[in-house]
């Protein structure tokens, strides 16, 4: 995965510092500069990078270190913990309950992969034995219903939508109620793309969430997004109760740092990543093991607990 490239750069910056003979202010600065550059190249938000740099420096405060303390270890630990902090949403993924109707609503910016991810998510759960279905509540985008319908048909998943109804909230409610009556366990609702600058679109999303009362709201984000990621993600989080994140298009070459920055904005874990256009190109994601892999450190746990 491309995200690993970021990990390699950070580890090599840490290693280089380990190799330099004296660890003074200069060595620490050089290392932090290198780490920052790797993060910025990966599109991590500039403010978050600056913060990380200050925090590490503060924690390591070289002057005050007593002689004999292992500076290298301490610095590595500080960098690692700050990165974990950045990637730690502070919340667990929403648990869905089998045997009950779980409504899951997908939201996100235009073209980020909501409709495709909805279908993949449905397919993934269907194969795990869930009774799943799809509702198309995007009445705006040309061809949106056909797109969902064709995907659903391919994966043999029941779907609901309309070519004529123009009120997305109405369709969402109708679809959800119909499938609830039929005892579906996972009712996945696809919505139109939207962005924070259009308040009417955000109000529509809030209204839909209020009406269908989803168990989880999944925020879908494209891995190639740059510095605008954080603000957009934050706006979605502030508007509705985002509980999970899916990062898409990781089969490309983007390093995904913009989307990673979004984790701290949404305070929600990344639950899946999209790795292609096909139905089974969806991988479950575990943030903790990701950070460990990101840093390519077998000895990570040692660093954190020591």
């Amino acid at each position: 995965m491309v995200l690993n490239e970021l990990g390699k750069k950070i580890t090599s910056a840490l290693r280089r510092m380990t190799n330099s003979t004296v660890i003074d202010e200069q060595a620490l600065d050089d290392m932090l500069k290198e780490v920052s550059r790797a993060l910025l190249e990966a599109d991590v938000n500039v403010r978050i990078v600056a913060q990380l740099r200050t925090n590490v420096k503060k924690r390591v405060n070289l002057e005050e270190l007593a002689a004999g303390v292992n500076k290298r270890k301490l610095i590595q630990k500080a960098v690692f913990e700050e990165l974990c902090e950045m990637l730690d949403p502070g919340n667990k993924p929403v648990a869905l309950k089998k045997g009950k109707p779980n409504v899951v609503m997908f939201v996100g910016l235009q073209g980020n992969g909501k409709t495709t991810s909805c279908a993949k998510y449905a397919y993934y759960h269907q194969r795990k034995g869930w009774k799943t279905c799809l509702v198309c509540a995007d009445t705006f985008r040309a061809g949106a219903f056909d797109q969902l319908k064709q995907n659903a048909t391919k994966a043999k998943i029941p779907f609901y939508g309309s070519y004529t109804e123009t009120d997305p909230v109405k369709i969402a409610l109708e679809g959800v109620e119909r499938f609830k009556a039929d005892n579906y366990e996972l009712i996945i609702v696809d919505t139109s793309g939207r962005h924070k600058q259009e308040s009417a679109l955000f109000e529509e999303m809030q209204q839909m969430a209020d009406t269908i009362q989803p168990a989880d709201i999944v925020f879908v984000m494209d891995s190639s997004i740059g510095q605008a990621a954080y603000d957009q993600a934050l706006a979605f989080k502030q508007a509705v109760k985002v509980g999970s994140v899916i990062i898409t298009k990781l089969d490309g070459h983007a390093k995904g740092g913009g989307a990673l920055s979004a984790v701290s904005a949404t305070e929600s874990p990344i639950v899946f990543i999209g790795t292609g256009e096909h139905m089974d190109d969806l991988e479950a994601f575990n943030s903790v093991s990701f950070v460990q892999r990101l840093l390519g450190m077998g000895d990570v746990s040692g660093l954190v607990t020591s």
């Binding site: 061809g143 056909d146 797109q147 064709q150 391919k154």
Partner: peptide, 13 residues
């Protein structure tokens, strides 16, 4: 000729 709904999207336009 690949993405689901691509042709219908253009039909609408």
């Amino acid at each position: 000729t690949f993405r689901a709904g691509a042709v219908e999207q253009l039909k609408t336009h």
